[in-house]
Amino acid sequence: MADQATGTLERDASRRVALVTGGSRGIGRACARSLAREGFDIAIIYAGNREAAADCVQELSKLGATAKAYQCDVANSAQVNDTVKAIIADFGPVWALVNDAGINRDGLLARMKDEDFDAVIDVNLKGAFNMIRALSRNFVRLRGGRIISISSVVGLSGNAGQANYAASKAGLIGLTKAVAKELGHRGVTVNTVAPGFIKTDMTDKLPEKTVKAYQAQIPMNRLGSVDEVGDVVAFLVSDAASYITGEVIRVDGGLSM
């Protein structure tokens, strides 16, 4: 179910390839942008917003990257397998996987519907599992590579009204550590980045009073930016981070200390 939004596959085969899920918006887009600046060609996976995906591919192209967008439901393993095959056929081996695709269906525990719990786990946790599994042979053949999953500080500390989301993000940490142990002997590093309160389209819709209340809990007294998360991902993908694996890197201004 691969779908090209825009872009070209005429590329320098010596450039490494990164695959970013949820790459058309927010933190995922910032990760793709940071990696493009570091000389990566980029495949992004998006759920449904074709316009945002096309705009992202155009932005990445202006940064010198060969980029292409693929529509895929990461919770659907068959779609993931087909999309990964298409990406490898288009780009060649994938050096870095960034799992950012995620949703939230917040609500109090007693009132949470089964479908809301299941949907969040399926996209946020199973989606990352599906992507890692589909690319595992790719990494084994490369005898190297990077896997980064975007968790959250709520996966470390929990949060009222987010039992499903917190569980999915905590699950990513356990998944990261297990895969790090499985693939470490193949030269693959596997890490998690846990953002705190990051300024996004979602936070822009919150009342100013709510934002200030959250900000007051942050030692650095400000919200983080998506680019600050993206730059940490770019570091973890780089050769400079070749001996870091199984870690959870918080990008939260000290919120979860």
Rank of each mutant, 00 (worst) to 15 (best):
D106K: 08
E115N: 13
L97I: 06
L125A: 07
L125M: 12
F117Q: 04
F117K: 07
V94N: 01
D116Q: 12
G107A: 15
N124Y: 10
D118G: 01
D100F: 13
L97C: 09
V120W: 08
N124I: 13
P93I: 05
L125I: 13
E115C: 09
A101M: 14
D90R: 11
F91G: 00
R105L: 05
G107C: 07
E115Y: 12
D122M: 08
R111D: 13
A96D: 01
M112W: 00
R111F: 13
E115L: 10
N99T: 14
R111S: 14
D100C: 15
R105M: 07
N124T: 13
N99C: 15
D90S: 14
I103S: 00
L125F: 09
V98H: 06
N104T: 14
A119E: 11
D114P: 05
M112E: 04
I121H: 05
I103V: 14
G92D: 06
V98D: 04
E115M: 10
A101Y: 12
A110W: 09
P93D: 03
K113F: 04
D116H: 13
L125S: 07
D122W: 03
A119P: 02
I121Y: 05
L97T: 07
V94D: 01
V123S: 02
R105D: 03
K113S: 09
A96L: 10
N124L: 09
D106W: 02
V98F: 06
G102F: 08
V94P: 00
D106N: 09
F91T: 02
A96H: 00
K113I: 01
W95E: 12
K113R: 15
V98N: 05
F117N: 00
N124K: 12
V123Q: 03
N104V: 12
N99W: 14
D114E: 11
L97A: 10
F91Y: 14
N104F: 03
N124R: 12
A110L: 12
I103P: 04
A89L: 13
V120R: 02
L125N: 02
P93G: 04
L108V: 03
L125C: 11
A89I: 04
V98L: 09
R111L: 13
N104C: 01
D90Y: 09
A89W: 05
D122F: 00
R105F: 03
D118I: 07
V98K: 00
